[in-house]
Design a binder for these strands. Structure first.
Length: 574
RNA sequence: UGGGGUGUAGCCAAGCGGUUAAGGCACUGGGUUUUGAUCCCAGCAUACCCAGGUUCGAAUCCUGGCACCCCAACCA
């Protein structure tokens, strides 16, 4: 059953019961807000979205979708033109859409409300709850006190309402230089919560804004803007991350003091953190700007645009967000969870093909030269409806270098001198000889095949332990394959005060320019996903791949129990 | 005694005074398998940060500790 419209994801089939869902459900049941559910996803357009944002997107859009008439706004929190850019606005919209969510008519910008916000500020001044402060930046800091010690009142605190009104109007009119004056809420300089010590609500910034152009030279601060924007949109539940918990009293103070008709409930949850990567905007910016990665869409990055390029699916990311849950616990999720979601989504619907990543030449000595057979190979072993294709078999093939060992270790089921294995959907072959070059490197295998085993099974019932993937040399296509691994080799890059960049994994990408893929891939389209049998899931790169010069990104490997055994063996030897 | 939070398995996470303390990932065994994949089956906390207390009964309530996270941008 799929109650899923073209652009909206249904969450009806998985009942979520985290504490936020519980609060919303109780509110609706109690008919709070007349039973409405209105949320918002409020990114600042100063960077690209990452998987941490996906958690918030899934939560906010997801909850709204669970209720009849539920709504979720996409609101750009664009109050700081010195950091924001239209480039980010477009990418954020694309990412939210890609994830599968639709904001319909509910695209907003905080800057849409600048006029109303200005009026609210004036109202505050008139109530004697805000004042224009002449302190310098340094003085503001000094007067604020410390975590332990209370602050002290600004000399500007006792300015008359009339003077404040006049000064604020002149700030707006551009009569002062940046930094000269600020508008502050008049709360309590001795408050134990630092955010309540007369927070700045407007500052001067003679900077054009991507939406409002030159109209303003004063811009409202987050705390003032956010709660009022929520109220203007009639948001019922304002979901944000834990670090804003301390801001909640301020959030409530503005709405209570201004007596807005709507007073949303701010609820905080823990942000996502994932092992072996970084999520902070500052760190991501640094990686991109200093070229530690190729750009915001580098497939190793946890950015949505990077994951999309890597081949990750929106469904897998949504599933991941469902599985990790929503709590206030400070946690870090293992990469394995994400990888498992990917495999789970990809396995049933991804066609299987054969590709030899690191080729080793194999000559079938008893196979007639010039002969070519077309062998049928299904696209999915458990789903015949996906069809099949013909793969050409001939005298000279490639197999994976890893699939041959001159001296086979314990439990190694693959090819070795004198050993027989199956070539998938083809024949049993036996290794007869190993050819080496002057450097003693293996360059070719000479094998024989058993004609009776066509298709891959022996009429006499004999078994082989290993099945290898292969391609025909004459028919295969050379392609570039990019093997991605975790970007960092420490679970928490930058932990205990170290520079997070020292944890960068030098082997986070391995480029194989001469992989050999089966001929059926000739027309593979950008973004198409395949399982390379026994290797993993791969996606045609949507930036660098072209017809005739295919580039594949590894999305995720298959589970590999042999790798585990081998690793355990290595451990024993040491 | 600045303020605000959080502590259930290796990683997440249910639990809301009476349960054999859900489930997922990971891990360990076993079965199926022409992918060492998938799938299936089984195992995996006498135990809930610690110490007291209340109660017939506590992961859930109370008291006191301890550990960790966040807050002193004219950032969001």
């Amino acid at each position: 059953m799929k109650a899923q419209s073209a652009n909206t994801i249904s969450h009806s089939d998985s009942i979520k019961n985290d504490f936020i869902h519980q609060i919303v459900a109780e509110d609706v049941k109690a008919n709070k807000n007349e039973g409405r559910v209105v949320t918002r996803f409020p990114p600042e357009p100063n960077g690209y979205l990452h998987i941490g944002h996906a958690k918030s997107i899934c939560l906010n859009f997801g909850i709204a979708a669970e209720y009849e008439g539920g709504k979720c706004y996409l609101r750009f929190d664009d109050t700081n033109p010195s950091k924001e850019d239209i480039e980010y606005v477009e990418s954020i919209k694309a990412d939210v859409r890609w994830l599968g969510y639709d904001w319909g008519e509910r695209l907003r910008h905080s800057s849409d409300y600048f006029d109303q916000l200005y009026e609210y500020a004036i109202a505050l001044i008139k109530m004697n709850k805000a004042y224009v402060c002449s302190l310098t930046t340094e003085q503001v800091k000094e007067y604020r006190g410390t975590l332990r010690d209370p602050g002290k009142n600004s000399p500007s605190r006792e300015r008359s309402i009339a003077e404040n009104l006049d000064l604020f109007a002149r700030m707006k009119a551009g009569e002062f230089a940046d930094g000269e004056l600020v508008l502050r809420a008049k709360i309590d300089m001795a408050a134990p919560n630092i955010h309540l010590r007369d927070p700045i609500i407007y500052r001067l910034k003679k900077l054009p804004h991507q939406m409002t152009g030159d109209k303003w030279c004063i811009y409202p601060m987050y705390d003032f803007t956010h709660c009022l924007s929520d109220a203007i949109e009639d948001i019922t539940h304002s979901l944000c991350t834990l670090e804003f918990e301390d801001h909640r009293p301020l959030y409530d103070w503005f709405l209570d003091t201004l007596n807005t008709s709507c007073h949303p409930q701010q609820i905080e949850f823990a942000r996502l953190s994932l092992n072996y990567t970084v999520m902070s905007k500052r760190k991501l910016h640094e990686l991109v700007e200093n070229h530690h990665v190729s750009g915001w869409d580098d497939p190793r990055l946890p950015t949505l645009i990077g994951m999309r390029r890597r081949g990750y699916t929106p469904a897998a990311i949504r599933d991941f967000c469902d599985r990790i849950g929503v709590t206030k616990n400070d946690t870090s999720i293992e990469m394995g969870v994400l990888e498992n979601c990917l495999r789970g989504d990809l396995d049933p619907k991804t066609p299987r093909v054969m590709a030899v990543l690191k080729p080793l030449r194999v000559v079938i000595e008893n196979y007639p030269s010039g002969q070519v057979e077309q062998l049928e190979a299904p696209y999915h072993p458990n789903d015949a409806s996906m069809g099949a294709r013909q793969v050409p078999f001939s005298r000279v093939l490639y197999i994976e270098q890893d699939d041959f060992r001159e001296v086979a270790p314990k439990k190694f089921f693959r090819l070795a001198p004198g050993r027989e294995v199956r070539l998938r959907y083809a024949y049993f072959i036996t290794c007869q000889a190993v050819i080496k070059n002057d450097q003693d490197e293996i360059v070719e295998l000479r094998c024989t095949y058993d004609q009776e085993t066509r298709g891959g099974s022996a009429p006499d019932g004999r078994k082989v332990k290993g099945t290898l993937h292969w391609v025909s040399e004459a028919h295969a296509i050379t392609a570039e394959v990019r093997l991605y691994d975790r970007l960092f080799n420490q679970p928490h890059p930058g932990a205990n005060g170290t520079d997070f960049k020292v944890a960068l994994n030098p082997k986070s990408v391995e480029i194989l320019p001469h992989s050999q893929v089966e001929a059926s891939l000739a027309n593979a389209k950008a973004g198409a996903r395949y399982q390379f049998e026994r290797q993993g899931y791969f996606c045609v790169d949507n930036v660098d791949s072209s017809e005739g010069a295919l580039v594949f990104n590894r999305i995720v490997t298959l589970r590999d129990s042999w790798a585990k055994i081998e690793k355990a063996n290595l451990g024993k030897k040491k």
